[in-house]
Design a protein around this nucleic acid. Sequence first.
DNA 1: TTAGTGACAGGCA
DNA 2: CTGCCTGCCACTA
Length: 106
Amino acid sequence: MTPFTRSVIKLIRLIPHGKVSTYGYIANMAGNRRAARQIARILHTCSRKQDLPWHRVVNREGRISLKPGMGFNQQKTLLQNEKVQVDETGRIDLEVFLWFPGTMND
DNA sequence: TTAGTGACAGGCA
DNA sequence: CTGCCTGCCACTA
């Protein structure tokens, strides 16, 4: 468990209900802006056991980066339960739902 | 050690 | 909107 991983975990837990963030932003906030893919891997490995809101992390296009049948449906459902609008293709309007640290918009 | 891969990002056509 | 390409980094065969 590297310090980078720990800060990533903390940051993700800060994402408020009803908002989303992106792999790139998380990586940037954690100190390594080129680590977007590592964020994905971290979530993939320890999301369940770390009790993380993994579903609040999408890619920079505001789209769910999971293949249908591989968690896509679950993530979409979890987000919709939080009133986040997700269309059938897994797309989300980042202009509305992207979380910016500091601006306690919720 | 090398090569392929992926829950990514950005630039460009 | 869709691809294609490059940079990135941990993991695996």
